[in-house]
């Protein structure tokens, strides 16, 4: 017992000394007169995940190179998959006077509802969602979402036209959110193009189990699939199998061509800069929230990027183009 008491005492003293040594809370560098637009972003996975977080990181870099480093800067916290840690980060950024704080994950919503009212002069953006909390009297939150089913549909059209075996395999994490939308769109695209094609889906119950994703791809190939697609970070395992077996692959969220130039046909890529540009303009003009944005094929926030090393048959390219056109003008519905 005495040991424990001593431990407590020691810790207290150490902590107090250390905090006392702290230079009295250095006044958070008061924003200099320079009109630099400062963004902070909190992301659930890593900036190089070839998926959701990377798409935002890349977009911020695009904006930075457009506006110039003297006019735009951003900081990030990655791997914030734990919500209360993310909440602490969001609050901390807001209190440091960033112009825009981006909570890049739908799980951060309930934290944002609590934080945003405390910082009425800071603009927040979060996604993927459509909820800006205006019904809760909050005016400084933007929302954004990706219509991932649209690119999924286009990928589905291409895959359906190219399959010889009429079996296509899909590897997904859990059947929710962005992954579910993408897969539903993909299935719709296949069904609209070639109804007789079978789409097998494996939800492997994890965003990180690369080995199981790879085995799921093997299983699809054993079941006759000659086209594969999949979504979330762990699909790199499936891409590897596709490469080894010479089966074609369709990517989403980021351009996955670099993983296997031989077999990646096309990737749906998110261009969040389309949304960011609008939000930044609104914030500069004094509007701090209230609008829900989306990226889709029509506003070029979603782009189908083809692998230049892969020659797509002309009629397939035309069909894909027609699908993009149709979805953009509303004549094709990407979800059944």
């Amino acid at each position: 017992m005495r040991k424990t008491t001593h431990l407590i005492l020691w810790l207290l003293i150490a902590v107090l000394t250390l905090t006392a040594c702290q230079p009295a809370a250095a006044p958070e560098a008061t924003p200099e007169p320079v009109k630099q637009f400062r963004v902070a972003v909190v992301m659930p996975s890593q900036i190089n995940d070839l998926a959701f977080s990377q798409s935002m990181y890349d977009a911020l870099n695009v904006i930075k190179s457009e506006m110039g480093a003297e006019n735009f800067d951003f900081v990030y916290s990655e791997n914030m998959f734990v919500v209360d840690e993310a909440a602490a980060a969001i609050r901390d950024y807001a209190s440091q006077g960033y112009n825009l704080v981006i909570a890049h994950g739908s799980q951060y919503g309930s934290s944002l509802v609590e934080i945003a009212p405390d910082f009425p002069n800071t603009s927040f953006a979060w996604g993927t969602t459509v909820d800006t909390f205006t019904d809760k009297g909050i005016t400084n939150v933007f929302a954004y979402e990706a219509r991932s089913e649209q690119g999924g549909y286009v990928n589905g059209v291409i895959a359906a036209m190219m399959t010889q075996s009429n079996v296509i395999g899909v590897v997904g994490p859990i059947e929710t959110g962005d992954a579910k939308l993408y897969v539903d769109g993909f299935k719709a695209g296949v069904a609209a193009t070639k109804p007789e094609v079978v789409v097998n889906v494996n939800w492997i119950g994890s965003f990180s189990d690369v080995a199981l994703a790879s085995e799921a791809a093997q299983t699809h190939i054993n079941a006759g699939a000659d086209m594969l697609t999949g979504t979330a970070q762990m699909v790199v395992g499936a891409v590897g199998v596709a490469k080894e077996k010479g089966v074609l692959w369709f990517g989403t969220q980021s351009n996955q061509t670099s993983l296997a130039p031989e077999i990646v046909v096309a990737s749906q890529v998110y261009k969040w800069d389309v949304v960011l540009r609008q939000i930044i303009d609104l914030v500069k003009a004094g509007t701090l929230g209230g609008t829900a944005f989306q990226i889709d094929l029509a506003n070029k926030g979603e782009v189908i990027e083809y692998n230049p090393a892969f020659t797509l048959p002309a009629e397939v390219g035309q069909a894909a183009g027609a699908a993009i056109e149709g979805i953009s003008n509303g004549s094709i519905k990407a979800l059944p």
């Binding site: 890593q46 995940d49 994890s206 990180s208 189990d209 690369v210 080995a211 199981l212 790879s214 970070q233 762990m234 790199v236 395992g237 891409v239 590897g240 080894e244 993983l259």
Partner: peptide, 18 residues
């Protein structure tokens, strides 16, 4: 056996609790 035989990739937390 994962990173250079079965999967031929490396990623954060590749083993995922194996």
């Amino acid at each position: 056996s994962l990173s250079i035989a079965l999967l031929n990739v490396f990623q954060q937390n590749l083993t995922s609790g194996m």
